[in-house]
Nucleic acid binder design. Sequence first.
DNA 1: ATTTTAATATGATATATGTCATGTTTTGTT
DNA 2: AACAAAACATGACATATATCATATTAAAAT
Lengths: 238, 238
Amino acid sequence: MFCLFLHDPKEKGMSKCEQCIIKQFNSLKALTNDELVRISKCKTSRTIRKGEILFEEGENINGVYCVKDGICKLSKLSENGKDQIVKMVVKGQLIGQRSLVTEESSNLQATALNDMEVCFIPKSEIMADLQKNSSFSFEVLKEMAHDLKEADDVIVNMAQKSVRQRLAETLVYIHDSFGVNPDGTLSVILSREDFANIVGTATESAIRVLSQFKKEGLISTTGKYIKIENLNGLGRVE
Amino acid sequence: MFCLFLHDPKEKGMSKCEQCIIKQFNSLKALTNDELVRISKCKTSRTIRKGEILFEEGENINGVYCVKDGICKLSKLSENGKDQIVKMVVKGQLIGQRSLVTEESSNLQATALNDMEVCFIPKSEIMADLQKNSSFSFEVLKEMAHDLKEADDVIVNMAQKSVRQRLAETLVYIHDSFGVNPDGTLSVILSREDFANIVGTATESAIRVLSQFKKEGLISTTGKYIKIENLNGLGRVE
DNA sequence: ATTTTAATATGATATATGTCATGTTTTGTT
DNA sequence: AACAAAACATGACATATATCATATTAAAAT
């Protein structure tokens, strides 16, 4: 497929995919060098500020995003007006594979939780690889299978556990999956509203439960910075 | 890969994959005739009685099941001892693709909701096709992408909607996806406990809400048979 | 620096849902 | 047919969580 995008080598972040370290963390690693060179010529880089929307629910994203830096949330608007956060995506991960495969518009909205650097690979360019390069499509398949398992787990938690348990598990999940800053605080910074939208509860409830955790010595907080003081304790929350 | 399974042509249900109509409804339709002939020689047929377990959570299923007849539920045991139903699988669908891809044991349990006829295709036989035949793997990818979208929707519903709404939507979903008997009753017969385990509520609550729906004229019931009397009304339940 | 706005916090109360108890009906078994 | 065992149904009550109100604090804007 012929590349329609002009690329200015001076454009910020216009580095080469084949030399990019980020791809090691996602299914793009399964592409051949030739494929990467071709994609590199076509991709565009983009900076998204904290709070900005990468794409909206129902939008045709027409490609995949590779997150070079930063974190974003994938959420879906419920009929009651609340945004349910379904997944968080960090540096190294891809966004938009599902829509690529199904040829549908996105079922989720992506919003930056802090400043992000992303590369956009147009569908026209990567679709052929997905259909020809079977080790690439197998990698995508593996990631999707992993996401599906995680989604199943979330369903069970939503259905069977209390807000307190879900929030405790969310904190542990963020700790284990996204790590901590040098001072021990969680590296992913979320508002109380975000926590509520992950757990599926009212913002006031999320605030209350976090205050309880603080009183119980399970966590400590300094503004939005949260430090887990008792990881095992959080895991045992009933 | 050499087939280790003996096959007795007299064995019940030992029909040929390449002639089987069922495959049209799932990703096996993307296999070539040669591939189907090879798989057919290796597959085994099995009858599962209502209530029997096809495989358990944590079990290595080592292959995929193709549902020739009947319906089963895929569920996951929560720590509180309740079984959360994550998905229902009917005639024509495959079970076990996810575990095939990830090489993990199953994260779900499969239990027959009525008598079933299934074919089992061993992993050793189909794995190579998944890696070589890209149109097959693309079909599996599409199914997985679809499941993932549905799972996202379930998460949002679980998090943001009332038991009443979730149960109403479940009834509509079963109606639309699995159809009705000649007399208009839902073709999928579930116990009140199953409904509770789909919706993620107590069995008593599911019973109560169904009774309410009945009083409100949204449904009518004769034992386990449920007939939707007002489909639009169910959709408008608050 | 000051003002405005948004985020966090907490109390009071309403409501949905869970739990326990108990009775009835249906289904399966001898 | 008689019995046992599930499944279904419904009441009474407990509890978790939502909602509304109102401070307080932190962040952004001028």
